[in-house]
Each structure stands twice: as structure tokens, then as C-alpha cells.
Amino acid sequence: MPSETPQAEVGPTGCPHRSGPHSAKGSLEKGSPEDKEAKEPLWIRPDAPSRCTWQLGRPASESPHHHTAPAKSPKILPDILKKIGDTPMVRINKIGKKFGLKCELLAKCEFFNAGGSVKDRISLRMIEDAERDGTLKPGDTIIEPTSGNTGIGLALAAAVRGYRCIIVMPEKMSSEKVDVLRALGAEIVRTPTNARFDSPESHVGVAWRLKNEIPNSHILDQYRNASNPLAHYDTTADEILQQCDGKLDMLVASVGTGGTITGIARKLKEKCPGCRIIGVDPEGSILAEPEELNQTEQTTYEVEGIGYDFIPTVLDRTVVDKWFKSNDEEAFTFARMLIAQEGLLCGGSAGSTVAVAVKAAQELQEGQRCVVILPDSVRNYMTKFLSDRWMLQKGFLKEEDLTEKKPWWWHLRVQELGLSAPLTVLPTITCGHTIEILREKGFDQAPVVDEAGVILGMVTLGNMLSSLLAGKVQPSDQVGKVIYKQFKQIRLTDTLGRLSHILEMDHFALVV
């Protein structure tokens, strides 16, 4: 994948999101292997301009796509893939009243899908469409860049269908997702969380590099694949309309690839034109409109599966009536509230959605109805927002919020430890010299600072030695090549209790 991002070429006709291997024109390309080798690009942008032909009021008969309808489940399912879809609609009884809503608040519980998330729908649909058009064949390999849930859905379907599955996901995604993927037989590649989507090191860039190296491999490409919004247009939206008897006044959905909100909203605009569509985008993402909503100094966020630093091709923002931004604290607070007060075992993005819903639905009156999409299960986040310690460490809970008995030293300040200034190293000294210094002084790690004293990161003896043994660096290389740029900081005025929580999850903390 090139470091400079080429513009994806656009073909003359058809839909841009065809499933299957992508040609340089962004659509299915038939021909000899030699032709494909000559024409197939190194990668295709996940934010390529959409060429979708959908228009409100256009006859369904003019759609270029294969459409399906929700099917009634048999008493005995032939395999677990038949437990994807037909998820329950559940009334939220307490939270709406707590925040003064007059309307009825309903939750579409997508964590009841077989793999635990709304992404099971698009995973199965992308595979079925690729099999139907002859792209996927027995023994082929599926590769997908994902925040985890699409990966789980694909790995689940691949396990049943017999495909090899490789999932490329950023490091910030939970260990629970990784464990589930491994249990399903998927191979996992992790990428830096802070890598831009168009960087060769991003999950998108690495996935395309693997595709170019592995024979008979395919990126189904949830960011561009029409099967993504079509899955929701054909099934999720129809289920909502049936469950609500066609009567709903507002739908609120958090947005990642945009397939969920695009597919549902398009069908609702056709069948229930008075329904307002509300999009939820986390602070630090750029999906919301108008652009002024996205202006923030924050560039990272903890909530998973929603928000991006690019506009995915499948996201149709014209069908969203209003956007709201959400933050991590309210997302996790509301997710825990949904679990504790409503018994809905949902993930953090569901918290984002409901946090926005109780604001947006203030305009609705008694007798009206708001539906929220709860995308995934708490299963993926047992060591994250479900953990009091994690919430404390991230600053989303305060010590006084917890009532468990603490040891005698818990409320003492870090400054009472009488710490001395640490050994520091410059980023320009060599790895070999740094190892000598650390061994001589008896230290395992040291902060790396520039000549102005600005902290650049941390270097550890173990990481340097393993990097040297693996051949990633040489003793003569500058130590700046092996620094940890993500590390926890703590102030002298913070409590030892807070430091204790940090050290339970990290090997060190830097006192500043």
C-alpha cells in the first residue's frame, strides 16, 4: 500500500459497493488471473465517493441489488447463522422517566444476534452475496479491517462455511474481542490505534497488504460494500417497522461504517417519512454534520465500534436529520445504567446512543415513540467499562463513588512517597548505550525526554532486548525507535489509591 493515498477510480455505471474482489474501477472485475494482476490496485480507499443510485421515491424494481426479506425461524435451526436477525424490541421503562421523557422509549437489542452484535447481519450478508456472485469459493481466505464486531461476525460465518479468516484490528480494541476471535479460529493482526486510516500501518493498510500477498484472499470491505446497508434496509428496518406496527417518530443510532443508519433510515424514509433520524458520533470522530460539531482538541476516545477519521463510502449522511456528539463518560455511564436499571447487557456504544436519545427525544410528546439501536453486548468489555477499576483509572468514576473498604494508605498523596527525580535518556542515544546505562543503574525503564525536557515516551529494558533479539533494531539504532509513546501519567497530588489502580493494569506510571 502506498504512503500517498491515490484516488480510487470510478467506473461508468453500476453501484460502487459490489461485493467481491475490487477492480481499479471499484466494481467486480472478471477475466484471467493475468488481467486481474495487471488491473487490481494495491488498495482502494474506504472513503471513495459513493456511486449508489438510491433515491427517495425511486421504484424498488430499479435497484441493481439482490434483495432479501426477513424469514421466520424454524423450530430447529440448521446452523447458528440462522440465529442472525429477528432481534427483540424491548421497552426501556426507567431511564426515559428518569430523564423526563414523555414518549415511549424502545430498544432494538442487536446483541441477541448469534455473534453478539449488529455486525453479524452485514457479515453474513457480505459472505452470502460474495458466494452468490462467485467471488468467494471453498478454501478462500477472508481478510477484514475491523474494530472487532464485524470480525467476530465474519469469523463466526467463516467457521460454519469453512473459510480461512484473518482479522486486522487496532490495538485499542478489547482483549475479549481478541479472545472470541481466536476461539472462532480467526487469525488476528493488531495495528497502532493512532495510525491514520490511509497510513500503511493502519488496520485498513495492513489488511490490503495481506490481501496482495495471500492468494485467493478477499477483503469484503464493510466500508464500501453495498451488502452492509442492504442488510439493514432489507431486514433490520423491516423488523423495526413490523415490531412497531409502522408507528415510530424517531430513530437514534450510533454511527461507525454508517451501514446501520443508512440502511434503516432509507427504508424508514420510504415507509415512515415523518420519522426523524438521529445520528450519534463520538467526540474525536469526524462523521457528524455540520462540520463545526467535529471541532475539538480530542483525537482519541475509548468507546469502541463507532466514529472514524474518514467518511466511509457506505455512509449516506443525507438521510440523517440531526447529529449529536457523545463523550466517553456519558457513554459508559449510560451503558452501566442500562445494565443495572433495565437488565440490558449492552456495550458502550449503546450507552452513547441512549445518552443522546434522552436529549433528542425531549421534543417528542406522549403517545409518540423513539427507537434506539443497541449494537453489541457487554461480553466484549468485561475488563473495560464493566470494571470499576478501569473506570477509575480512566477518570470516568471517582473514588467516592465506590463504597468498598480501602487499605490505610489509600488516600495518601503520591508526594508522600518522597520520590527522587528519575533517570532520563535522550532519544538520540543508541539502544546499546541505553541498555548499558539501565543495567549500570539497576533500572528496568526510563523516560525519554528531548533537550527541552519534554517527555516523549518510555523505554524499557525488556522491550529493547526483545527488539534486538527479533532483529527489529540494532544496538547502533537510536533509542527513539523503541519508545512507548502511550503511558499513564500521575500527579504528586493524586492518591496512592489512584496509582494502585493504574499499576494493576500497566507496568509503570510516570509522575509529573
Rank of each mutant, 00 (worst) to 15 (best):
K72M: 04
G96C: 13
L136T: 06
G205Q: 10
S117E: 05
P6H: 07
K25A: 03
T235H: 02
H22W: 06
S3R: 14
N212Y: 04
V178S: 07
A71E: 10
R161W: 07
T236I: 14
P192V: 07
A159W: 02
G263R: 00
K82Q: 11
R209D: 01
I219A: 04
E62Q: 14
L181F: 05
E9Q: 04
D179I: 03
T87V: 06
V160K: 04
G162M: 06
T193Y: 09
I152F: 02
M126T: 07
P78G: 11
K30S: 03
Q55W: 10
P88A: 07
P229Y: 05
P78M: 03
E104D: 14
R125T: 05
I122H: 00
K83C: 10
E9P: 14
L184V: 04
D238A: 10
A71P: 13
K98R: 03
T257K: 01
T257H: 01
I92L: 04
I240L: 02
I84D: 08
K25L: 11
P46A: 07
A114P: 04
G11M: 04
V160T: 04
T141R: 07
G85K: 06
L241M: 14
R224V: 07
H17S: 09
R164E: 07
T257L: 02
K97S: 14
D47M: 04
P192S: 11
R121V: 01
D245E: 12
P41L: 15
G258F: 01
E29L: 13
E213G: 15
A159Q: 07
C52E: 02
E187W: 08
T13I: 09
P16Y: 13
I264L: 13
K177I: 00
E110L: 03
D79T: 13
E62G: 11
I80M: 14
M126K: 06
K82Y: 10
I92H: 05
L251T: 04
A231K: 07
K267Y: 06
A155I: 03
I95G: 00
P16N: 07
H17C: 03
P41M: 09
L81D: 05
I264K: 05
A183T: 12
T260E: 00
T5M: 04
A130Q: 02
V206I: 14
V90I: 01
K271F: 13
L42T: 11
Q7A: 10
G20V: 12
A114T: 11
H22I: 05
A159S: 02
M169R: 06
K247G: 07
C275W: 07
P2A: 14
E4N: 12
I240Q: 00
G31Q: 03
I264W: 00
L28G: 10
E128I: 12
L81A: 05
K172Y: 05
V252E: 07
P33R: 11
I142V: 15
P46D: 00
E176V: 07
E187P: 09
I95Y: 02
L81H: 09
R161N: 11
A237Q: 06
P64Q: 06
C244E: 00
R91H: 08
H65F: 00
S50N: 12
D86L: 05
F112C: 01
V10Y: 10
A186Q: 03
G11T: 09
R121C: 00
D47H: 08
H66L: 09
G31E: 13
R196N: 12
D179K: 04
T68Y: 06
R121Q: 04
G20W: 08
E62T: 03
V90C: 01
H65Y: 05
E239P: 05
E213H: 03
S27W: 15
D249F: 01
K137Q: 11
G100W: 07
H203V: 01
F99D: 03
T146H: 06
E171Y: 05
L77C: 08
Q222F: 00
L220T: 02
P21G: 06
K119C: 03
S23K: 09
L184K: 01
G100F: 11
D140E: 10
R224M: 07
V255Y: 03
A207F: 00
H17F: 07
I219Q: 01
D35C: 04
I44K: 11
I127C: 04
N225P: 00
I240V: 06
T87M: 06
W208R: 08
E213T: 12
T13F: 08
R58T: 11
P192L: 02
G31P: 09
G134M: 06
E110R: 00
D234R: 06
C52N: 03
E270G: 06
A195K: 06
I80Q: 06
N228S: 04
M126Q: 02
D234S: 09
P2L: 15
D86P: 10
